[in-house]
Amino acid sequence: MFENLLPPLNDHNLPYADTIHPIVVHFVIAMVLFAFLCDVLGYFTRNEKLYEVSWWNMFFATISIFIAIIFGQIEAGLALAYDAVEPVLNLHTLIGWSLSGILAAITGWRYVIRLRDRKTIPVAYLGTGFFLTCLVLFQVYLGDELVWVYGLHTVPVVEAVKEGIL
């Protein structure tokens, strides 16, 4: 009934040229990692300008992660997920949604720190930034695994699933 309203899927099993999720999510990854680096450098050099750079990176990363999740959910829904890939895809999805809440909470905390004193940052916040960095890097690992090991949205895998080989 609604099939006529949807655009046709291409050889990547997508209604648009290629995956968008990785493009958007790379901005989130870069901003979170760069924010943590700026906080650490700012802490040891006592350069408060680096804290400002960190704040804005966290702010825009928090907005961007929700855009990345929207495209991630669309593309995960369109992925021809065969049995072997499902546990990794489910874990990647769970951590992605969790990261959105964690990142929003940490950014909120960072905003309060910024309002109170722009010249210092607590060591506890740096520890939380380290935890966030580790979580982001694990999520990157899972995303890489989905593409480079399981081949989601790659033409050969899409064809293999459609032909019943996988």
Rank of each mutant, 00 (worst) to 15 (best):
L142E: 01
V32Y: 08
V40R: 05
L5T: 04
F60I: 01
H12F: 14
G151L: 08
A61Q: 07
L89R: 12
V32Q: 05
V40C: 07
F59E: 07
A81P: 07
D11M: 04
N47C: 10
V28Y: 11
S100T: 03
H21I: 02
W148R: 09
A61H: 09
I65L: 10
N47A: 09
E3M: 13
V140P: 02
Q73M: 11
T107S: 11
D83L: 11
L152P: 07
D144P: 02
D18K: 12
G101D: 03
I106M: 14
T107Q: 08
F36H: 08
L78V: 07
Y111R: 02
L80A: 06
N4E: 11
T133H: 04
I67Q: 15
N90T: 12
L80R: 08
N4T: 05
E75Y: 03
F2C: 10
S100A: 12
I121N: 02
I29E: 14
F59D: 06
M58F: 15
V161W: 15
D11G: 01
N90E: 13
I69W: 09
T19N: 10
E75H: 06
D18L: 09
L33F: 01
W56A: 00
Y141A: 01
A81N: 09
I20N: 10
Q73V: 10
I69E: 12
G151C: 07
Y125M: 10
P7S: 04
N47D: 10
Q139Y: 02
S100W: 03
A76S: 11
P156M: 06
T62H: 07
E145K: 05
G72R: 04
E3K: 11
F138I: 00
A81L: 12
A17Q: 13
F138S: 00
A124L: 15
F36S: 03
P8N: 13
L78G: 07
E52M: 13
R118V: 13
Y16T: 03
L132A: 04
H153Q: 09
I67S: 15
L14I: 09
P15Q: 12
